[in-house]
Computed example of a mutant assay.
Amino acid sequence: MADISPLSARPEVLDFLLTRRSRPAKTLRAPVPDRGTVDTLLTAAARCPDHGKLEPWRFLVLERAACTRLAALAREIGADRPLGPEKLEKSTRAFADAHLVVAVVSVPKPSDKVPETEQVLSAGAACLSLVNAALACGWGANWLTDWMAFDRAFLSRGLGLAETEIVAGFIHLGTETIVPPERPRPDVAALTEWVSA
């Protein structure tokens, strides 16, 4: 392990990051975090990198009834999309089985200094920060998108999003019912190039 300054070292945090594992959304059930806990998780998510302090994201907390409504809407709209029955059922079940989902909405802001791409990446960073905060608190969490995150009809009718907004991630939260097995991880050495000059 690399040398870490003893004044700022947080080995337990590094250990968490080195062993973190998302929980499949389909295995998450009630109970779910209460409002106070969700507020804490969102506060942690909002501490993500945000060049220019633009806050190019916002959060929609979707409770059980909203998830049920969105499942029906996904089925309705998805029937007109070239998804196939298996894909349509899978995407519909993602909401039908959910008890609590946070939609992290990418909200690009006009800026001469911060390109839209950086703002979308900030929304993605908020997604990962939210997942990690939930996992660190002992909740199951999973980051999904699927076609609904980009479908204008679904975004407008289901979530009331503006034309310029998309969902960077649907973050499913709940109690894990199955501990997932470890999966193969990237060979970091094969993906890394050191440039010395």
Rank of each mutant, 00 (worst) to 15 (best):
D151S: 09
A66C: 10
D50S: 06
T117I: 12
V120E: 10
T27G: 04
T192S: 14
S106Q: 09
P181L: 13
N142C: 15
E63C: 06
L54T: 04
G52V: 04
G78L: 04
L83D: 06
D15G: 10
P108R: 08
T43M: 06
V105N: 01
A126K: 01
M1A: 14
V13P: 03
I171P: 00
D15A: 15
G84K: 09
P24N: 05
R21W: 05
R152Y: 06
L62T: 02
V32N: 02
F59W: 09
L191E: 14
E63R: 15
A9R: 13
K87C: 05
P110M: 10
F95Q: 00
C137T: 07
A133G: 07
E116Y: 05
K113Q: 11
P85E: 14
T19M: 06
T40I: 07
K26Y: 12
S122A: 15
A125P: 01
P31E: 08
R69A: 14
R81E: 15
V167T: 03
K26I: 08
P180K: 09
A149G: 05
M1W: 06
C48A: 15
A44M: 10
Q119A: 03
S91M: 08
A125Y: 03
T192E: 11
A44H: 06
V114F: 04
T92H: 00
D97W: 07
A197F: 11
V167F: 02
L14I: 12
G160A: 11
V167C: 04
G169M: 01
V179S: 14
L73A: 10
L62Q: 02
E176A: 14
A65C: 03
F170D: 00
G140L: 04
R58T: 13
F95T: 00
A45K: 01
T117W: 15
T192I: 11
R93F: 08
S91Y: 13
R75F: 08
V120W: 09
A65N: 09
P24R: 03
V38Y: 03
L73I: 08
I171W: 00
V38C: 09
A189W: 05
L28K: 02
V188W: 13
G124C: 06
A44I: 08
E86D: 12
V102M: 01
E116C: 06
S111E: 04
E89C: 03
S129D: 08
G169F: 00
S8K: 11
V131Y: 02
V188A: 14
E176R: 13
S156T: 15
A153E: 15
R157A: 14
G124L: 03
S111W: 04
R21T: 07
E63N: 09
W147G: 02
P110F: 08
A94W: 00
T19K: 15
L73H: 04
S106G: 10
K109M: 11
K109C: 07
A46W: 04
H99K: 07
V13I: 15
T37H: 05
G160M: 10
S111R: 05
A189N: 12
D146F: 12
E193D: 12
T175H: 02
V195M: 12
P85I: 03
A74N: 10
L14V: 12
L173K: 01
S5W: 10
T68P: 01
L159R: 05
A72Q: 11
L128D: 09
P33Q: 05
D50Q: 07
H99E: 15
R64M: 08
L60F: 05
S5H: 14
I178G: 03
D39Y: 05
T145W: 02
